[in-house]
Design a protein around this nucleic acid. Structure first.
Lengths: 147, 147
DNA sequence: AAGATTTGTAAGTGCAACGGTTACATTCTG
DNA sequence: CAGAATGTAACCGTTGCACTTACAAATCTT
């Protein structure tokens, strides 16, 4: 299993919004064009980002605005907003191990801390990258193209 | 999305094999009892662990043996054996972003390294835990129960 | 050699999430 | 009001997961 493409799509959206904000009206239609998917998919993701308080979306007129600086939004914020992982648990624990079995009734408590540490390592790394990193990286790529 | 319960089941299996190896014949049936699932599920997972070279399984007579010391098998080895993540990629990248769009044609290259770093942080943490840690943790839990 | 036990595997079921799509009400601007 | 955009509900097809039944292949015991 993989973490939903909604996560990478969200990052793609943020990049587009900033890159094109002065040049085009960045609507769900426009974004769907760059991402090559359906506008409704985009709107659903925008909805999640809005509910998480990362952006505002203007109805009718269209237009997406960040509520914070690019440097103040990390990959982790986006990952959380998207709900990329059910109940916040990366690992799916098999339910109801046999309580009659000594191993069965203790395995959950035993594994829990270690699995949390593993997931935590991933999430901590996610906190290191901001949307500003993404934006400046894209600027470099585009400059390279225009050489 | 979550990482398949086959991963936690595999860890459960390893724990049982070691805890019960002198006391019972540890068959797929026996394991299914502790884990509370179907023997065929267990056999499939055993098959993957075997293909990865972590264990040998005796047909007919039953019996599971590790090919290395408990301390020589990490959570990462198990995770890899199980194929918990498609193509080895934790993140699902939306396919075919629009190559006509400057962002679309560069987003993949831009994100790739960062996503790999995030996945790498998780996998490195996985390498820190061995089956021996699991075994000794279980021993402690059981000692606690018998107090 | 026969019978019992166990693994290996194919085939099929039900379910849930994902990505996609159509359709339409709602909201805002001009 | 007309036009443009978002918000959502409803539905589809596909895929992977967990589970189950069934049976062939391998191995041990007697």
């Amino acid at each position: 299993m993989q973490i939903s493409s909604r996560f990478t799509i969200a990052l793609h959206i943020f990049t587009c919004v900033d890159v094109f904000k002065d040049e085009y009206k960045v609507t769900s239609e426009f974004l769907a064009g760059s991402i090559n998917t359906n506008p409704v998919i985009i709107r659903k993701i925008l909805s999640q980002l809005k509910n998480a308080g990362l952006i505002t979306v203007a109805r009718g007129t269209g237009g997406i605005k960040l509520t914070r600086e690019l440097s103040e939004i990390t990959f982790f914020d986006v990952y959380e907003a998207i709900g990329a992982v059910e109940n916040g648990d990366l690992f799916h624990f098999h339910d109801s191990p046999n309580p009659q079995c000594p191993v069965g009734r203790n395995i959950h408590a035993l594994l829990d801390g270690k699995l949390k540490a593993i997931q935590g390592a991933m999430e901590d790394e996610m906190r290191k990258y901001t949307l500003l990193d993404l934006r400046s990286g894209m600027t470099e790529f585009l400059a390279e193209e225009n050489k």
